[in-house]
Write a protein that binds this DNA or RNA. Structure first.
Lengths: 331, 331
DNA sequence: TAAACTCGAGTCG
DNA sequence: CCGACTCGAGTTT
């Protein structure tokens, strides 16, 4: 009977924090809070771009007519930006394409602006940079979600009195965790602890060799020192049977992106399952998302019931997240 | 033997234009061309935003100190934009949240700028608007992909001497197609023709009731007049057995987005197949993408071979697209 | 000019 | 807001 209970516990542990699909749906209040903090971050990150624009205007103001801009080599990159070319697009253009783009900017927009050409240049520069800023913020959103997960994991380990060490992303060394590591989540790339004498090592954003894709979070049955970076084939992450659980984490708060990104996550999880299945392995998979809408909540819950997915939680719900961390730590 | 040939033709028609997975991969030249046309579109769409910024500066210049901005009700929305709040985020904020955001903008960025506060306001406004512009361009990218598909479909119908009519998105009426419809793809929402006395009606961006999701393109076994908009349950699209083929179309050119969006498309296609399967139906599914990378090309090709997918093409390859249109028209 | 990750800026039914 | 569509702005490994 004890075994039976144990089995039940590990099979349906999501029921501890999810009573139905509705528990997974993100509340309006959390969405609102997410958008507010997003705007705050954006303001902070905007300042360097404003400075860039000021510098550009200052340099451009030294000349009389737009056509002379071509001769100021130090602002060529900024001119290209003002002509609507993102840093991403830049990589695909030839020198000639770039010169053409700048020429079009001057002919179509700066010369018509006459004496206001410096302002026009600054405006168009900022429009393109605004899109850059958006990209930076989107990346930051992902990082913040990961940090929230980390903080909750560490808190749960601490509460359970389990000692841990963490992999520092800069030094690449494992450091023993202690209460006074403030903001440790900022540099944390991995986490390791013991579960009744079994080593557990968790790594973020790992390219899983058997899947040939990056996975947000992997829990391995390995000691921290068995994990070696990159192409070292002796590292524990090269052995598929070491994988205990793999997670897809979506930190975005936008409800409009919820289903879109869940569809992506679902494909990613399917690739993972398929790759491990080819080795007759069935590691656990789980999903954590900050933006969960009704229809996808039903899909997730159905997958849990069908055991296609081992666990799930809404990142904005602390109780769900704690319960999930407890589950993960005790796998 | 004739039947055998026929069967072979309909089952593996993708082989007519795809010799291996490598045929699907987008060439560098097409990627480059895509980014160039993207920059051109961005320039055109940028102008209204530049005008907005000029207007904002002009109004803001009438006052002496930043704090007075709060009193100019006509620019409240612009102030919110300058404080890093997108139109999307706005919807989730309360009046109080908005006022707080504006207050922070003034205190943290405009007052420190002293006499240059009008410039600072304009810069921050443009940064946020630049992100808006990016969103507008992303939507446009999708529309352009759809139009390319439409042009190729019409050209293929014309070449095969098949007459057609099209559904106009504004008038909501079916119009007989003719050679002199220039730019008809811009307003085209649907297309209809006959295939050896069987009516074929194709609708873009249709919410398929049985799937409860929007599908980029649906080919129905129905006469055009049997298609009625929206919630009319007598419309042909309410009858699952009328669906002949459903497509996922990805018009984006960015290689970095290729796998991301293919993962989404793959989930969408799986939802479609699953929903129809619940009615014992197996409509054809196909994928067209402008950005196709190696690894996903292999996945697509494997799905074709396994008949999980009925057809596929690279949107940037005219030969592939024509072959696919021929297949679609003759289904 | 690797490849595949981050996610929300828009849009429309 | 209601959900689910458009896709590339960044980023990492």
């Amino acid at each position: 009977m004890c075994l039976c209970m144990e089995k039940k516990r590990t099979n349906f542990d999501y029921k501890k924090h999810l009573s139905s699909w509705e528990s997974l749906v993100t509340s309006y209040e959390q969405t609102r809070a997410g958008f507010i903090s997003l705007a705050l971050e954006k303001n902070r990150k905007a300042t360097p771009f404003v400075e860039e624009a000021k510098a550009l205007k200052s340099i451009a103001s030294t000349i009389e007519s737009p056509i002379e801009l071509i001769n100021i080599t130090q602002i060529k990159s900024a001119l290209l930006t003002a002509s609507g070319v993102s840093d991403k697009a830049k990589k695909y253009l030839t020198e000639n394409d770039k010169n053409e783009a700048i020429k079009r900017l001057i002919e179509n927009f700066l010369e018509p602006a006459a004496k206001d050409f410096v302002d026009e240049l600054g405006y168009r520069f900022l429009l393109t940079r605004g899109d850059s800023l958006g990209g930076i913020i989107r990346n930051l959103g992902g990082v913040l979600g990961e940090r929230k997960m980390t903080r909750m994991l560490i808190a749960t380990l601490s509460i359970q009195g389990i000692s841990y060490c963490y992999l520092h992303s800069k030094s690449k060394e494992w450091i023993v965790g202690s209460q006074d590591d403030a903001d440790v989540e900022i540099f944390l790339k991995g986490l390791s602890w013991n579960k009744s004498n079994q080593a557990r090592t968790l790594i973020y954003n790992l390219t899983v060799p058997i899947v040939k894709k990056n996975v947000d979070l992997c829990l391995l049955d390995a000691k921290p020192e068995q994990f070696m970076r990159r192409n070292n084939k002796n590292s524990c992450h090269y052995f598929p049977s070491n994988y205990i659980a793999l997670e897809e984490l979506k930190g975005g708060i936008d409800p409009a992106g919820a289903d879109e990104h869940w569809k992506t996550a679902n494909s990613a999880l399917n690739r993972i399952k398929k790759a491990f299945l080819s080795n007759d392995l069935h590691p656990k998979t789980f999903f954590i998302g900050a933006a969960i809408e009704k229809a996808m909540a039903k899909e997730i819950f159905n997958q849990l019931d069908a055991k296609h997915l081992s666990n799930a939680a809404n990142l904005t719900d602390d109780n769900q997240l704690i319960s999930l961390c407890e589950w993960l730590i005790n796998l």
